[in-house]
Design a protein around this nucleic acid. Structure first.
Lengths: 189, 189
DNA sequence: TACAGTAGAGAACGATGGTTCTCTCCGCAA
DNA sequence: TTGCGGAGAGAACCATCGTTCTCTACTGTA
């Protein structure tokens, strides 16, 4: 039998695939059981409720997001390039099969109004990202205001790419970010 | 009794309020009946299904959005100011009680994967907005690429404002849009 | 007054979902 | 070999939901 750790991972990964592809409420716990290969009894031993499982899925997505952003930044030389690397990371993600937007935004729209825990998880993730960008912006010697502007481009790119399937969205966002960074540089040399 | 037109309006407005505040799937048709004051039998005479009602709600939201954007632009003198007026419109909206993000983005995240009709309605709305901005950008004599960048800022502002409740989001987006327009102007005088 | 038609209230129906319970089976200790 | 603890399969349970149906009451008309 799978040990507790492996079973938990399997359930969270399965739930993530299903929730992301179809939406949380469209997926029954029985579908999670089938996808994960873990009995309902075991799932409810690992998670108190479906809401708990959703929170765990969002925690997994946060780790994946942080890793992806960090990996993209690792190849970049300057703080400025590390900021722009976010959009290269997005570009690759948008082209993946089954891309359906940001799981946090989707979950917030679906459940944020009825589940404070899920709303908090989404808020925490978005605030952490904003903090990450703010750190890079300061490293680059630019004013703090630029950070929120870059974040808005990244968020807008995610929803627009999800809805339109336009493959040029990430590039357009990157171009806009470059222009914003350049504009800020001329004002704070 | 309400005539057909009035009953339809009442049901759509009630459904809009409830769906927007709580999410579509969290609201039962009986709650719509209670809020609208129209019997279930009548509702199902006006709409074939709940999905139909959701599509009608999105059509209402599209009209409201178009009206709001047009009204904001009406006060503006130049094409450039009409573009920036979008962000003033957003700023006022974000400060309204009960603001919970873009209903289209929320509906897409919740139901886009399972309802092609809803996904299409969302896509149509977003494409129309992009077309509107593109028209203004061309009037201003700027390159087409700026339009998508402005759209990304507007979309990002909506999701970020919904999640964080930060009241400075629309202003930051407006500032970014100004910088992008200025940058494009220096390159195409 | 009697009647036909219509509308509303809400019960009913069939499906589905989250959660729990039962039953059976397996591995292992004595 | 016997008995026990735990695990899985899936039935069961209760609530909810979308949708339809029934019954009652009222309106306008002859």
């Amino acid at each position: 039998m799978l040990d507790e750790h492996a079973a938990r991972d399997s359930v969270v990964a399965a739930a993530d695939r299903l929730f992301y592809a179809r939406g949380v409420q469209a997926v029954g716990m029985d579908a999670v059981r089938a996808e994960a290969g873990v009995s309902l009894k075991r799932i409810y031993g690992l998670f108190q409720s479906k809401e708990d499982l959703v929170v765990a899925v969002l925690a997994l997505r946060t780790r994946q997001w942080d890793d992806g952003v960090a990996a993209a930044a690792a190849d970049a030389g300057s703080p400025r390039e590390r900021i722009l690397a976010v959009f290269d990371f997005l570009d690759a993600w948008f082209r993946e099969d089954g891309f359906r937007g940001c799981a946090f935004i989707n979950s917030f729209g679906e459940l944020g109004a009825t589940s404070p825990r899920i709303a908090d998880a989404v808020r925490g993730h978005k605030e952490a990202f904003r903090g990450h960008v703010l750190g890079l912006v300061r490293e680059a010697g630019l004013p703090d205001t630029v950070a929120l502007q870059v974040v808005l481009l990244a968020e807008g790119a995610q929803t627009t790419a999800a809805i339109t399937h336009d493959t040029g969205v990430a590039r357009a966002a990157r171009g806009a970010a470059e222009a914003l960074l350049a504009a800020a540089e001329t004002r704070t040399p």
